[in-house]
C-alpha cells in the first residue's frame, strides 16, 4: 500500500541520489589521495542536495551546493595544494593492527544502535513551533520566517561565531612575528643563521627538524623576507 503512492520519478531520483551519496562517501574513506577524497566529498554533497530538494528544502539544497561544495571543499583543496600533501598515503598497512577492524566494528555498532533506536517511539514536543513545511508560502519564506523570528537569537550568535572563526583563522595562519621571546629564537637555528636571508625571522619549531621540507624551504625563506620587508617599504615614505 505504501509502494503504490511512490511515483516512478521520485523513486528513481531517490535511489540514484542515495547510491551516489553512499558510494561517494565510501570513496572518501577508501581513496588514497586526499584530492580524490575531496572530489568524492563533492559528489556526496551534491547527492545530499538532491535529497534535500526531494524533501521540499530547496533553499537548503542551494546553500548546500554553494557553501559546502563551493566553499568548504575548495578550502580543503586549497589546503591540500598549499601544503603539498597530495602524495598518496600507504593505506595497505596500519601501524596499529587492531585499529581497522575495531573501527569498522564500532561503526557497525553505531549503525545497529541507530537502527534499533529508530524502532522505538519517542515523545516529541509540540509540532508547528515554527510553521509547517510545504505550506502555501515558499520554502524560502517559511525558513526566513523561522530564522528571523523563532530563532533570532541563535542567528545573531551565529554572526559572532563567524567573526570569531575569522579572527581565529587569521591568527592561526599568520606567521609568528620575530620577537626575542619566541621559543624558536631561543633554541637557535643553525641552518638559518649561517647566511640565509631570512635567518632573523623567528620560526618556532625550526630546530625540531623538517627533513622532508628542506627542499621546499628555500622559496619559503625568500617569501618570508618579501612579506616581512614589505611593510617597511610601505612605511618608509610616510
Amino acid at each position: 500500500m505504501l509502494a503504490v503512492t511512490i511515483t516512478i520519478p521520485d523513486l528513481v531520483t531517490f535511489v540514484l541520489a542515495a547510491a551516489i551519496v553512499l558510494v561517494a562517501a565510501i570513496g572518501v574513506v577508501v581513496s588514497r589521495s586526499p584530492v580524490h577524497a575531496a572530489l568524492c566529498l563533492v559528489a556526496t554533497l551534491f547527492g545530499i542536495a538532491v535529497l534535500f530538494v526531494e524533501q521540499n528544502a530547496e533553499f537548503l539544497a542551494a546553500v548546500q551546493v554553494i557553501v559546502y561544495a563551493g566553499a568548504i571543499v575548495v578550502l580543503f583543496l586549497f589546503v591540500i595544494m598549499l601544503l603539498g600533501v597530495d602524495r598518496e598515503e600507504a593505506i595497505g598497512k596500519d601501524p596499529l593492527r587492531a585499529q581497522r577492524p575495531l573501527g569498522v566494528l564500532l561503526g557497525l555498532l553505531v549503525l545497529a544502535e541507530v537502527l534499533v533506536l529508530s524502532r522505538l517511539s519517542w515523545p516529541i514536543g509540540q509540532p508547528h513551533v515554527a510553521g509547517p513545511v510545504g505550506g502555501p508560502s515558499s520554502n524560502v519564506a517559511d525558513l526566513a520566517r523561522a530564522v528571523f523570528t523563532t530563532y533570532l537569537l541563535p542567528f545573531e550568535i551565529t554572526s559572532a561565531l563567524l567573526l570569531i572563526a575569522t579572527v581565529g583563522a587569521v591568527v592561526l595562519a599568520r606567521r609568528p612575528p620575530r620577537s626575542a621571546g619566541q621559543p624558536g629564537a631561543a633554541t637557535g637555528q643553525p641552518g638559518r643563521a649561517t647566511g640565509q636571508p631570512g635567518g632573523a625571522i623567528g620560526q618556532p619549531g625550526g630546530a625540531t627538524g623538517r627533513p622532508a621540507l628542506d627542499g621546499a624551504s628555500q622559496p619559503d625563506a625568500a617569501d618570508e623576507t618579501g612579506t616581512v620587508r614589505s611593510p617597511e617599504r610601505e612605511g618608509a615614505p610616510r
Binding site: V129, G131, P132, L143, V147
Partner: peptide, 12 residues
C-alpha cells in the same frame, strides 16, 4: 513532523 524548525537547525 511538518515543522520548518528542522530546516532552520540545518542552517545553523
Amino acid at each position: 513532523l511538518h515543522d520548518v524548525g528542522g530546516q532552520a537547525a540545518v542552517f545553523f
